[in-house]
């Protein structure tokens, strides 16, 4: 370890409070990765990541690789050190492709990753507590919304789908923890092998298929013909919600054997959770993104109801 030469990157919207170091050997080949907190908020997020990753590593086997972290300290800050897994983030690979090819390859990968998610068990199953989950979602509305009128609209939309949510919870009976931030940027691909990074949001979420829906929604943004290839910019939600409904929701509906109406309800729960979380993190771009997503889903549900 002592022979490694380190360089550090701190660029992503979520990386304001922490930096990522790459330990390179004498030939410049990176073999070890370090994530270091720069503030109490960064330290907390690394603590969460360490706990999440440690739990999920122990729970295996998994259909994807996981780095085994070691926790250290430097001058009061948390450092997680782990071997660098082979591969490049899917998002980096896709960005190198021309736009049309990016969308084709990207949606193909979404389906592969959903199959992997279906084959994954990330922790012990717990029974759904329907009343508690509804309460949790209602509490998130306050955090996820900006204005009183938006709040009222989302509450109304949530009330409309409550029965669908209760039905799916009753049918499934139990749920397992999710990765919590499952998008292309956090998945490495090396030929046909995948590795999943960034486990700071690992945990139990009120809605099932949380990772599936996060992946589909985030992909619809980054693969959108009008998107600029980042998650942090405002995008044309009408196009995206249409894309979701024309292609991805029906395909997920077939794969999971659930009606599209149920998936819309789950999508609302997922968007609500993500919007609340991003507003809490106060990262500029993503905050806007999920808040817009929430609004567009609510509008879409409203239209579907009236049709």
């Amino acid at each position: 370890m002592t022979d490694l030469h380190w360089f550090w990157l701190a660029r992503g919207a979520g990386d304001v409070h922490k930096i990522t170091g790459f330990g390179c050997d004498a030939t410049g080949r990176p073999s070890t990765v370090r994530r270091m907190g720069l503030s109490s908020s960064g330290d907390l997020s690394l603590e969460r990541e360490f706990e999440g990753l440690s739990s999920v590593v122990q729970y295996g086997p998994h259909p994807f690789s996981l780095p085994k972290p070691v926790r250290k300290q430097q001058m009061g800050h948390v450092i997680l050190e782990m071997p660098l897994l082979p591969g490049t983030s899917i998002w980096e690979q896709l960005r190198a492709l021309p736009r049309f090819e990016r969308a084709t390859v990207g949606w193909h990968l979404v389906r592969r990753l959903i199959q992997i998610l279906e084959a994954s068990e990330l922790g012990d199953a717990r029974p759904f507590d329907a009343d508690q989950n509804i309460l949790n979602l209602r509490m998130l509305v306050q955090k996820a919304t900006e204005t009183e009128s938006q709040r009222a609209t989302v509450h109304r939309a949530l009330a409309d789908v409550e029965q669908d949510l209760r039905d799916v919870w009753r049918q499934l009976g139990t749920h397992r923890p999710a990765h919590g931030d499952f998008w292309f940027g956090n998945v490495l691909k090396d030929r046909n092998a995948f590795a999943v990074l960034d486990w700071e949001y690992y945990g139990y979420y009120p809605t099932p298929f949380f990772d599936h829906l996060t992946l589909i929604t985030s992909s619809s943004v980054v693969l959108s013909p009008k998107g600029d290839g980042t998650l942090s910019r405002a995008v044309d939600w009408t196009t995206i919600s249409r894309a979701l409904d024309d292609n991805e929701i029906p395909s997920l509906s077939r794969l999971l054997g659930r009606p599209q109406k149920t998936l819309h309800a789950l999508l609302l729960g997922t968007a609500l959770t993500l919007a609340a979380r991003e507003r809490d993190r106060q990262t500029d771009g993503n905050q806007l993104l999920w808040s817009e997503l929430l609004t567009s889903i609510v509008m879409h549900l409203d239209q579907t109801k009236h049709n």
Binding site: H5, F7, W8, L9, A10, R11, C24, T27, G28, E92
Partner: peptide
């Protein structure tokens, strides 16, 4: 506001860091 920190005394590492920094720019 350092977003890329790289050691100047090790040619392969600084080159790797430059590549990583440049690729992120896209």
């Amino acid at each position: 506001l350092p977003k890329l920190i790289a050691p100047l005394d090790h040619t392969p590492t600084i080159a790797r860091a430059m590549r990583a920094g440049l690729i992120v720019r896209g």
